[in-house]
């Protein structure tokens, strides 16, 4: 057991997380959804993030869920993310089920919870689909086009740009702590001592990291000035030029049409057969 955990932990290196994260963020333009117009995708997402809350018809929810599973597969999401999502959903249900048992419920209390889970799954899968299909650049441009302030949109994309640098530095500083620190001689009960040691340095790493970042950003802010950023922010013409590449194309319209037709058919179906599965 301990060995298995150790092996798993060895696999999760900072380097690995970095690759996974950046892969998820930027490796999307190769998928079908990744090529769609970001504005359209964002609005599409808004629909699927809000409407499930107001729908109690399980057939419709199930239909939406199936659609979301298909889009999730289409967007080639990293298995890690799906795993984390499932873990979240299962543990959520598990807790509630335990609670309901505690208050005298039985297996029948699982069914209503399933409905809630279905709603959450639709929303989560929609988020995953959209945010892994939109790389930070297109997300930022999409938001900007929909009227979100430019400074926010820019910081979003800059945040991603600087992420690898920060992770790299985090890794280095963590190493410094480890190279000069002393791990507890004994692991302690349930590895608690070792765990406490690692958690402690994980927190401590952030202090030097923040100080170094503050120092570094001096150049960045100055460079933004010399690269005309403030000029752009005060100039609506620039924004238009920057976003001029955004255009609804045939595949965008097709995608919208398919969604509308699918959802449109789902509602009458739901009304006719409200209990398709249970």
């Amino acid at each position: 057991m301990v060995e298995a955990v150790k092996r798993a932990l060895n696999k999760i290196s900072v380097e690995h997380i970095k690759l996974e994260l950046l892969g998820t963020a930027y490796n999307s333009s190769s998928t079908f959804l990744g090529r769609l117009d970001p504005r359209m995708l964002l609005i599409w997402y808004l629909f699927f993030a809000i409407t499930p809350w107001f729908i109690y018809n399980r057939t419709i929810l199930l239909g939406m869920f199936v659609f979301m599973v298909v889009t999730t597969i289409l967007s080639k999401v990293s298995p890690y993310i799906v795993f984390i999502l499932c873990l979240g959903l299962v543990s959520q249900i598990g807790w509630m089920f335990l609670l309901s048992l505690f208050f005298g419920g039985g297996a029948e209390s699982l069914l209503p919870m399933l409905t809630l889970t279905l709603k959450l799954s639709v929303i989560s899968l929609a988020s995953i689909t959209v945010f892994s299909s939109l790389d930070p650049e297109r997300l930022s441009d999409g938001l900007s086009a929909l009227g979100v302030p430019d400074a926010f949109a820019f910081s979003l994309s800059y945040g991603y740009r600087i992420l690898p640098t920060l992770l790299e530095e985090f890794h280095q500083i963590l190493l410094s702590f480890r190279l000069r620190g002393q791990r507890p001689e004994k692991h302690g009960f349930l590895y608690l001592r070792t765990a406490a040691y690692y958690l402690r340095i994980l927190v401590l790493v952030f202090y030097p990291l923040m100080l170094n970042t503050a120092k570094r950003s001096r150049t960045t802010v100055e460079a933004l000035e010399t690269r005309g950023y403030t000029y752009a922010v005060n100039n609506p013409k620039v924004k238009k030029l920057r976003l001029s590449y955004l255009a609804m194309q045939r595949r965008d319209w097709l995608f919208v049409a398919f969604t509308v037709v699918y959802i449109g058919l789902l509602f009458p179906l739901g009304a006719a057969v409200p209990n398709l599965l249970y």
């Binding site: 930070p136 650049e137 800059y158 640098t165 570094r216 950003s217 150049t219 460079a223 933004l224 690269r227």
Partner: peptide
Amino acid sequence: DFENQLVRP
């Protein structure tokens, strides 16, 4: 420190 003047991905 030119790295810090590169702001796009």
